[in-house]
Design a protein around this nucleic acid. Structure first.
Lengths: 369, 369
DNA sequence: CTGAAAGCGCTTACAG
DNA sequence: CTGAAAGCGCTTACAG
């Protein structure tokens, strides 16, 4: 392994100064185009690779970003990591991973650790129910448009509306919505959207898994068969993980999907296309979300201007549309009168749309925008 | 935000030299314990945080490691990332993520990109069927004990043996083993272990999903019901992902699990404990594997000695035991004569153990150690 | 347009 | 035991 060469080596080989080489290579244009070309050629010929450490020391920037997911064990982590890495790499940044190790306050500590490590900025996907404090350091939050301080995220409300419209169009009139944490903005947005897109006469049951497990223990049955007895024909989960739980519980109870009931999820996790029946779900545009988050972060980093108290974000940040993936798990409602399927696409219907006989098991689930 | 202070600030505050401060803080012991104590106290009081960039430039080391998984979308990625991050952090290293973006040759390029970024070493979990070339840079491979150059990994063979023994002890005599890629060392180890632990009279079908999908298209049915007609009562998949596929396909066909058949997986992925029935599976000791890999990497980095052609690895690297997680999806074989369940635990039985009427659908699946 | 010089924050021989 | 000095590889005013 030849020792890595530096600017000085190139300068010597060409009989110019390191300053000139630096200027030529960084393309800041303080060098004649002619000389610059020669220098670039030589650098390439010699296989020059700039030392990030040297650059970091003189510029005060590491060209590294930190990625913090409160729950690094979440099945969405791979998608996030990949999208963020790609967007960061395209902008010349590396990505350092942070882990909160399940500790209390871990999120903030993970962020701080990354900053101490020299990260120029942090992308954080916060834990449900938490708010990211301003740390006087560039940060981009990926949460939900209804979260104050959100930088970019999927339009979860609209995603919910698409699912709701899809199930409604199939003729369903009695729904169960399955969520996990009632303090999650993402989940509440999705649920709000679903409800808003259902027809007036719809019946809706809302099921929070964490609540249920707190009462009946982890891994408890969701009691879905009982809901079917009450007339439910469509189960809309806010995550494929819960949809999967529903699918297996229903199948085990002898329920046919989508023959007897429809089941939908969210996020298009890896198994959604692999189970039988394959799962209808909503996919986030991770690449786009990551791009927006990274762009915002870089603006903060390179834009200068010490935004001590935070330049006011665009309220709600960027809301990136989600994509409906229709698969086998959703089909026509069993008893749906053939002629009576609703037409239009009630996306972004406002809250009044679901005013009628909604039968929530808890309050506080309204969209907070 | 006060400007980050440096060694010189502490030195001035104390009227000593920066060299002394540096020595005191790095604990290399060229300073009287008395003075060192004072300096450390002052540094703490002032909230001094060392500049990694400065250190990196003078030592030539970034204190950062790279993590490359060929398939960053794999559901095991979170577990790997978390374990590696924790082990690395404990040793004072950060972890940069690499992504291969699904390109050809991407694995090597991802590794090189991380090295160019200044990573002191790389942890790589290679893509099935690939071999990591020596790049003259510290590297630790997590693959399988049967892979040349493996640094540390789960003892997949023994994990398979545990599953095989578990199913045998339940009275099963006719098995289907479900794999994905026939060129995966990990999968072949697991399968070899399973087979080795089955009783002599066992019947075994081997199913490779990639082969099947190449013929019948992606997402094709696995034809598990047909296997049941042929007498199969136990399905052992080499990943929870395939076990899940099996579970839903069987449930959909009206098969009761574990009433009619048993199903087992591997890796204890997030949904294994959540579906109905919950899935019996094998768990890797990621924390231990990560520790060993990081320790080996750090030995290479800090041990000096330019191992251009690679100091010969301990053959097979470290093999870390796996843990059997028994859940609802595995139960007694339907027609098992009650008195005839085998006793002992045939772990690590050698290859002869499965010589009898094995009915492979393909060859080349033997353990290659 | 080009170069000499200072400086980023640290570590490490080398003197004293 | 402690300090003065050089050096890691780069960038950036500042001169010429």
């Amino acid at each position: 392994m030849a020792p890595r060469l530096n600017l000085s080596d190139i300068a010597k080989a060409l009989g110019v100064s390191v300053a000139t080489v630096s200027n030529a290579l960084s393309g800041k244009g303080r060098v004649s185009e002619e000389l610059a070309r020669v220098i670039r050629a030589k650098a390439k010929e010699l296989g020059y690779i700039p030392s990030l450490a040297g650059r970091a020391l003189s510029t005060g920037r590491s060209q590294v970003l930190g990625l913090v997911l409160a729950d690094i064990g979440h099945p969405l982590f791979p998608q996030f990591a990949q999208a963020i890495e790609n967007a960061a790499a395209a902008a010349g940044y590396g990505v350092l991973i942070g882990d909160s190790r399940g500790e209390i306050d871990a999120q903030t500590r993970a962020i701080n650790r990354l900053i101490e490590r020299g990260a120029d900025g942090i992308v954080v996907v916060p834990r449900h129910g938490t708010r990211i404090a301003n740390i006087g350091h560039p940060i981009a939050v990926i949460d939900s448009p209804s979260t104050p301080g959100n930088t970019a995220s999927a339009d979860h409300w609209d995603g919910g509306a698409q699912i709701g419209a899809h199930l409604s169009a199939l003729g369903h009139r009695s729904f169960a919505i399955i969520g996990l944490h009632s303090d999650s903005n993402v989940q509440n947005d999705r649920i709000g959207g679903i409800k808003a897109a259902l027809p007036r006469q719809a019946r809706v049951e809302l099921l929070w898994i964490d609540e249920l497990e707190r009462k009946r223990g982890p891994g408890a049955e969701l009691g879905l068969l009982r809901l079917i007895d009450k007339g439910v024909t469509a189960f809309a989960a806010v995550s494929d993980l819960h949809a999967l739980r529903a699918v297996t519980e229903l199948q085990r109870g002898g329920v046919s999907i989508p023959g007897d009931v429809s089941v939908t999820g969210f996020d298009d996790l890896i198994w959604a296309g692999v189970i039988a029946p394959t799962l209808t779900t909503m996919r986030m545009n991770m690449a786009r979300i990551a791009e927006l988050a990274i762009a915002d972060l870089i603006r903060q980093i390179e834009g200068g201007r010490d935004s001590e108290d935070g330049v006011p974000h665009r309220p709600g940040g960027h809301a990136v549309p989600m994509e409906l993936i229709i698969r086998q798990s959703s089909g026509p409602a069993p008893a749906a009168p053939a002629g009576k399927r609703p037409g239009g696409n009630p996306r972004r219907a406002d809250n009044q749309a679901n005013g009628s006989i909604l039968e929530d098991t808890r309050e506080g689930t309204d969209h907070k925008c």
